[in-house]
């Protein structure tokens, strides 16, 4: 019985081994924050690193959709996976982001999402359920990604 309680409390604490918004990451001030702060919105979670070429290409697009749809309730959350935060800061200086940037240098959240490649993106609906998943960023598929988000925003 005790064990079950322990298990339940662990689950409640957000130890999840699946893509969800119940994960702890760091914000720019190095404070642990939960992704659940974006619950209620359509959330586009993107995993990126400074050394990843396609990630660089995805930033202007993410800036664009954030600006275009934030009023309708879209939140773009880009989780950086560099172990060295300085490299991430250098990247952000070159490619500024107007969306939420979070940090997961330990990679434990990335592990829970079971990334297959870099970058990887996950779309959550307003109920916080995972509905879509993409590996890589392809400029010629950007319109397709955008349409998926628009559909979620309309739900």
């Amino acid at each position: 019985m005790k064990k079950i309680w322990l298990l339940l409390s662990l689950m409640a604490a957000g130890v999840q081994a699946a893509p969800s918004l119940d994960h702890q990451v760091f914000n720019a001030q190095n404070q642990a924050v939960s992704l659940s702060e974006f619950k209620g919105k359509v959330v586009y979670v993107d995993f990126w690193a400074s050394w990843c070429g396609p990630c660089r290409k995805s930033f202007p697009w993410m800036n664009e959709i954030q600006t275009k749809y934030q009023d309708q309730g879209l939140a773009v959350v880009a989780i950086n996976l560099d172990t060295d935060n300085e490299l991430a800061q250098e990247f952000l200086k070159q490619v500024p982001a107007n969306f939420s940037v979070r940090f997961n240098p330990e990679g434990d959240v990335a592990r829970s999402f079971d990334l297959l490649g870099m970058p990887s993106s996950f779309m959550f609906n307003r109920q916080g359920q995972l509905v879509q998943h993409h590996v890589g960023f392809y400029a010629d598929k950007a319109a397709e990604y955008e349409q998926e988000l628009v559909n979620l925003l309309k739900e």
Binding site: A49, W51, T83, G107, L115
Partner: peptide
């Protein structure tokens, strides 16, 4: 290694 652990290999 995991996809996000390829920073050195990406050099």
């Amino acid at each position: 290694v995991q996809p996000w652990e390829k920073g050195q290999l990406a050099r």
